[in-house]
């Protein structure tokens, strides 16, 4: 199932159960998948037009009125385009607005550089009060949505609309405060967020063939980070490779290395986007071009282990 299908199904359920939940779109309801909600809940589905700044603050007004608004756009226009609106009317005002960013980083594919946001996590990590989530698959997304609606306070959630790759089965239990250890190992800790977990697991498979056992931790929430799970793993493995579909500056790599700088100095490295702008391409081409593949994970892990 596509992520957007899982999302809209989960939202329909949440909106059925909670009359306070409203959705807002900036002319991407068709692309993002929320369109059916406009028929199901006409009073609580609000088309704002191509005006993400206005959408953000309309959501603030709705939140101040007791509603739980979800705003939607591509990641760059959900976060970067309206950053001051989020800073003042959501973060500073501590209003219960949920921000959904579609197609983060390379998953913007053929929409290209203007739509390819490598900095959304860094930007929102820097603002107080906002929970920052990077979702791995449709199963996790469906289980996270009810939590996001119930959680008191702003949340940012990024995911790729059209992704169908599935990591978890229906028995998966989403634990808001805990990252998921999806592979056990003792030689290197690989901490991956969102859909990069798939590439991290590919890397772990390559390493396994070389006799290296990687522990893979799938992070769905970059802030607040489950530092305990990562620190405990690192204490066993002695080094940490972060894997993220985001700039190397200020995202998950920032969160992980800040923690180790404050606590136990630990060799770290990152498979991430190294200070580059976006471009058009297919997902597999882009992953190769930005060195975000399973092979890159394995190569970096080998070099990192040598630094222990």
């Amino acid at each position: 199932m596509e992520m957007r299908k899982a999302y809209v199904a989960a939202m329909a359920e949440v909106m059925k159960n909670n009359p306070k939940v409203v959705v807002l779109d900036a002319d991407l309801a068709s692309a993002g998948g929320t369109k059916p909600l406009y028929t199901q809940f006409p009073e609580r589905a609000i088309e704002v037009g191509i005006a993400e700044d206005n959408m953000t603050c309309v959501a603030t007004g709705l939140a101040a009125y007791g509603f739980i608004p979800f705003i939607h756009s591509f990641a760059p226009f959900s976060v970067r385009r309206n950053f001051d609106q989020i800073a003042v009317s959501v973060s500073y005002s501590c209003q219960n607005v949920k921000i959904i960013g579609y197609d983060p980083g390379v998953t913007a594919t053929t929409n290209g550089g203007t739509h390819m946001c490598f900095e959304d996590v860094a930007m929102l990590r820097a603002l107080p009060n906002i929970r920052v989530m990077d979702i791995v698959d449709p199963v996790q997304l469906a289980k996270a949505v009810p939590f996001v609606a119930e959680h008191q306070g702003p949340v940012y959630m990024r995911f790729a609309r059209k992704q169908t790759d599935t990591l978890f089965d229906e028995d998966y239990k989403f634990r808001p405060e805990k990252a998921d250890v999806v592979r056990k190992g003792n030689d290197v800790t690989v901490v991956a967020s969102g859909a990069m977990v798939f590439d991290a697991l590919k890397g772990a498979e390559i390493l396994h063939e070389k006799g290296i056992e990687a522990e893979v931790i799938a992070v769905h929430t970059v802030k607040p980070l489950d530092e305990q799970t990562i620190a405990e793993s690192a204490a066993r493995t002695g080094c940490v490779l972060v894997v993220e579909n985001h700039s190397v500056h200020g995202g998950l790599f920032g969160a992980v290395t800040e923690m180790f700088a404050r606590t136990v100095p630990t060799p770290c490295d990152a498979v991430a986007v190294y200070d580059r702008i976006g471009q058009v391409g297919s997902l597999s081409e882009l992953k190769k071009d930005y060195n975000l593949t399973g092979e890159d994970v394995a190569d970096k892990a080998v070099k990192l282990i040598a630094r222990k």
């Binding site: 609000i46 700044d53 206005n54 953000t56 603050c57 309309v58 959501a59 603030t60 007004g61 709705l62 939140a63 101040a64 009125y65 007791g66 509603f67 608004p69 001051d84 609106q85 003042v88 009317s89």
Partner: peptide, 14 residues
Amino acid sequence: GQGLSCACGLATGS
């Protein structure tokens, strides 16, 4: 520049 949008949200809520 943000207040009018916020007021629109309040008015929509009402």
